[in-house]
Design a protein around this nucleic acid. Sequence first.
DNA 1: GTCTATAACGAGATAGAC
DNA 2: GTCTATCTCGTTATAGAC
Lengths: 203, 203
Amino acid sequence: MAARRRSQPSTTRTAILDVAERLVQSRGFNGFSYADVAAELQISTAALHYHFPGKAELGHALVDRYAQRFGEALEAIAAMGVPPPEKLRAYADLYLRVLCDERMCLCGMLAAEYQTLPDAMRNSVVSFLDHNCDWLADLLETGRSEGSLEFVGAAQEAAQMIVGALEGAMLVSRPYANTEHFEVIADRLIGELTPERSPARSR
Amino acid sequence: MAARRRSQPSTTRTAILDVAERLVQSRGFNGFSYADVAAELQISTAALHYHFPGKAELGHALVDRYAQRFGEALEAIAAMGVPPPEKLRAYADLYLRVLCDERMCLCGMLAAEYQTLPDAMRNSVVSFLDHNCDWLADLLETGRSEGSLEFVGAAQEAAQMIVGALEGAMLVSRPYANTEHFEVIADRLIGELTPERSPARSR
DNA sequence: GTCTATAACGAGATAGAC
DNA sequence: GTCTATCTCGTTATAGAC
């Protein structure tokens, strides 16, 4: 029972985070309200304020939880025991899975609203992007040294491009309400990093 | 005097659009209010309602004007009498100039907030993206047939990737409050489309 | 065209009972 | 932990005077 209490961070708190997360990812931090979350959970907004004193605190908890989960997903991919190109594909699939749920990446959404965010949230958004870039740069460098990935210049810069391009792919895909738009971009990105065994036509 | 009146769509109306445009590009459509615009122009919100009955109408006017200006910029580039790679660079520079002003692309911002937008605005955002893709696909196809640009697969798909990647580059660059992040991505994008002999980096 | 005044509503937040 | 009730403020919008 003690063990259970320790691993149970209040079921309501988690439910609030889950609903708020989906709302922010689909409508933006400035596009949802405590009332929206409360209505969906059939509780009062006062209950929300018990768990999260203000919207800023809720937002901060959201992005921190998201970043932690994403970080765990990255570790899982890193541990996967497949070659770098497949890990790169698995990375892009993380984004695709979010998009399939008709959501934008939480931190991509918050990046758009960056200038209106509380300070604490801003820092967490930048940390998320940095962490992704670092992880990717490491993967890219490993792949290049093995010969399984090909790119010019610094791995950090190639990583920046991948993160930016995937976030942008999600951004422009959602208005079309399909995932093909995203997949086309992800495929091209990965294709450009993968050595060509059968050279493409070029004059 | 008649000519003047014809080419003068009310100086206040234009001023409202200018201020609102900047606010939406920096804070989002859900992150600004009539009061913000009114305060900056030192007029009342009632005056705003005279020119634009509601926020939806103002938003629609904003995105339509933006799309028209962007379209004119594309025509100007198309008419430039330089080879396709330079036109591609000029295209990326359109985005860079927006970012230098600490703004997101208006339609990129609205794409993030897409699910909260009035219908009329939604359609205009999609039209903007489509127009950009079509224009780029045409440029890419021309470049490939000339041998000045290189890419695999359909021009439409390569164009989708460029639009998505540039929008994403703006998105992730703004939290870093510099343009280098964007420029790194733009340079890589262009570099990948340019045959090896001339790396041709500007700056 | 622009103003003041105000209505109508929603959002974020707090107090205090249970 | 959750509720009801309430408060304050900001936002959108309208009415009517000038």
